[in-house]
């Protein structure tokens, strides 16, 4: 009889996904990488940071190093496998934090309106007027490149966008009659925001969260590629491309494989989001 948990509602959605072939492909890709990330120590054939000097003579794919070795003689397959951990450690946490902030700000702006709304809007406007890369650069330059700072930057950039989405939906949902009914029986503002409004915004938010995980993965990769990401030698897909890109014309496989890895994960997340969107329209 009690209110269904958000988890249960999310699970219902996931079960429906089998009706969207595109969404299934996405889910498969995402689950594949999740599996790889969780079991990296058992799957990876080599230590991702071990330099095999012999391999430098011929770094191309072989029976030993399936995807070849990089310019320092490290096994690319193992580095890709361990690199997935970086993504799954940083992106979900960053997105989750951004959502916590974005939902609360958006709910308050949309529900209270007035000066709260004005204030939240001005702050969002200002943060959103920075092109994302400029913000990343400023944060990384100022605070240094580390996983924590990347998470911080993602939160900083993503939460105003989430705020806008949640605010828009709150403005619409607050006019529903069940919200008036809740007010009339004396529910607190917090109850109305979290129990009456937020659960009904979940459809678009789940889709957005999925897409946002993809964007964040891209951002982590881009920062790595630009040399603003995690400090070496820990494997990071963007960084792997950066380190080997100069050797593209001789050994394209060094860059191609990590580029394919990040692309497949993000494509998976986007297809999954599209599948979810398709389902939420049908409901």
């Amino acid at each position: 009889m009690a209110n269904d948990g958000v988890l249960a509602l999310t699970w219902n959605r996931v079960r429906l996904l089998k009706e969207s072939p595109v969404g299934m492909i996405g889910a498969f890709l995402v689950l594949f990488w999740l599996f790889v990330a969780i079991f990296a120590p058992w799957i990876a054939p080599f230590d991702p940071n071990a330099n095999n000097m012999d391999a430098l003579i011929d770094p191309t794919p072989s029976a030993v190093n399936w995807l070849g070795t990089d310019n320092s003689g490290r096994d690319i397959l193992s580095r890709i496998i361990w690199g997935s951990r970086t993504v799954f450690a940083v992106a979900p946490l960053a997105v989750l934090c951004a959502y916590a902030i974005g939902c609360m700000m958006g709910l308050m702006a949309g529900y209270y309106r007035g000066w709260v709304d004005d204030l939240v809007n001005r702050i969002s406007d200002i943060v959103l007027s920075f092109p994302a890369i400029v913000l990343y650069i400023i944060v990384i330059m100022r605070f240094g490149a580390s996983a924590n700072n990347i998470i911080l930057a993602v939160i900083f950039i993503s939460s105003p966008q989430i705020t806008r989405i949640v605010r828009g939906m709150t403005l619409e949902l607050r006019e529903r009659e069940y919200v008036a009914a809740a007010k009339m029986r004396g529910e607190s503002a917090l109850y109305i925001m979290l129990v009456e409004i937020l659960p009904n915004a979940r459809g678009p938010l789940i889709v957005d969260a999925c897409l946002r995980l993809g964007y964040t993965t891209i951002a982590i990769g881009v920062l790595g590629f630009l040399g603003l990401g995690l400090p070496p030698p820990d494997p990071d897909w963007g960084g792997m491309v950066k380190e080997t890109y100069a050797m593209m014309s001789i050994y394209p496989h060094m860059s191609l494989f990590p580029a394919a890895a990040i692309s497949s994960l993000v494509v998976g997340l986007s297809l999954l989001a599209d599948g979810m969107r398709e389902i939420s329209i049908r409901d």
Binding site: I218, V222, V241, K242, I262, S263, V267, S270
Partner: peptide, 9 residues
């Protein structure tokens, strides 16, 4: 969904 540096590669 393909980052610019990847499609560049």
């Amino acid at each position: 969904s393909v980052p610019e540096f990847a499609s560049g590669v």
